[in-house]
Design a protein around this nucleic acid. Structure first.
Lengths: 246, 246
DNA sequence: CTTATTTGTCTAGTTCTATAGACAACCAAC
DNA sequence: GTTGGTTGTCTATAGAACTAGACAAATAAG
């Protein structure tokens, strides 16, 4: 059944951990919350008990399960934060009510020539100067997302100053004359976390990031902001709500 | 800079591969498409050249790069399929124009008692009988998604028959009296592929899946269909388009 | 053609991963 | 308290991953 493979760059114990994680997500063990014994899992996966133990230890480190000697391992329900994506997607507002504190921290800002996708998204000439803003989104002190935003450079030259003053991109944009903006589109995919992701988002190797490409535009106007975000997938679900329906 | 870690269950060469993949996605090497030499990468990551070679070999297997002796390694542009998510999300219709053939293949259908999340989503009593449909979505012969759908069992008892007749869930639902339905919400996250994912979607270890939870409902009515899908993340981007705006 | 650069292949040694078995420590139930 | 079942820890061994160095083979530029 469960076909573990060797020589793949993923240790057997991690493949097993991923498998158990998926099983938990699919609602297995839902009744009692108790996982099979280490011996049973070893038989099921066709590996040594020590290998299973390494998998369970990893899951325990991640807070997915809780295991005590003599009793067994038990699933710990842990909800991901829900990050709403809709026409009015904003960082802090979307997480209200789920966490005590949200913070978006500016890491770096600089002017650079627009790369091809940036120029296309913002309707600019290639290599036109754009303002690049790197930010870290946090909730209750835990990093959630690492985002890079691009803006047309001349119109939004003072955006970083306004951002530093207000601590909010929405308000900084308002100070630059953008009274209201909407999310035009969001493309979502996922990939293994890179070393940079692991540093910025405080992830362990083997973690996964959700990648989003998005464009915000002025109401009744053109595109204003192009963003690439990387969310820690084990902490966040992106929640797409359709407006106007239901 | 790039902090590779050992004893993590992820081989160094795979961490490096993930890193290079992320760099490519961030637009590095965009100008010439040429990666640094193996020796340069070995220095950059602080590992032996053989380890870098293993990483590059993996990327070449995935079709991300193309490397020839004496020249070097070059990025191969490869687009993911774009799977639109909106109020009218349908499998086949959404991929039209991107691929020649789409197919959704029924794997299994059975009646089972509703688990807690299924019952809640469909507004049913816990353990109420529900129809469960397991399906595989393919585009041009490549598996894209593995989905499990749940429907209220009595009203949709003959859905599998209609599905077999029409080859489309939309039409099968119509035959059950659901003339039109809309996507009520979609929750998206991601995780490492489990062994089951790897089998169903023909993935290699280390691959990532996009997980979606979604509910479809009748226009002006209640929820009809609760679904859990698992997309091969390296083949798909979920594209969220907002209706009514722009 | 010649040379410098870069990838391909081989061998050997070291460190990490997985297996195997044994036994101690702990828990729950009788 | 005793028993059966379960997790925790230890040792030893085989196999895979990583390092190190050397040289062959292909490419590109002069």
């Amino acid at each position: 059944m469960s076909s573990l493979e060797r020589r793949t760059g993923i240790a057997l114990w991690r493949q097993i951990a991923d498998d158990i994680r998926a099983a938990i997500g699919n609602g297995a063990y839902e009744d009692t919350g108790k996982l099979p014994t280490e011996a049973a899992l070893a038989t099921q996966f066709g590996v040594n008990r020590h290998t299973v133990r390494a998998a369970l230890a990893a899951l325990a480190r991640d807070g997915m399960i809780d295991t005590t000697q003599g009793r067994g391992s038990f699933v710990v329900a842990r909800k991901r934060l829900s990050y709403p994506i809709g026409p009015r997607t904003r960082f802090s507002a979307g997480l209200e009510g789920q966490v005590a504190r949200t913070r978006s921290r500016g890491l770096e800002s600089r002017i650079e020539p627009a790369s091809a996708p940036v120029a296309e998204a913002l309707h600019l000439a290639p290599d036109a100067p754009v303002l690049r803003l790197d930010m870290l989104g946090e909730a209750d002190g835990t990093p959630l997302s690492r985002a890079t935003h691009w803006f047309e450079a001349t119109r939004f030259a003072h955006l970083p100053d306004h951002y530093r003053a207000f601590g909010s991109i929405t308000r900084a944009l308002a100070a630059c004359g953008v009274e209201d903006y909407v999310r035009l589109f969001t493309d979502i995919t996922a990939a293994p976390a890179s070393a940079a992701d692991r540093q910025d988002l405080d992830l362990e190797p083997g973690a996964v990031v959700l990648l989003t490409l998005s464009v915000n535009g002025e109401v009744g106007g053109g595109p204003v902001q192009y963003s690439r975000s990387r969310f820690a997938a084990d902490r966040v679900t992106l929640s797409v709500r359709m407006p106007g329906e239901i």
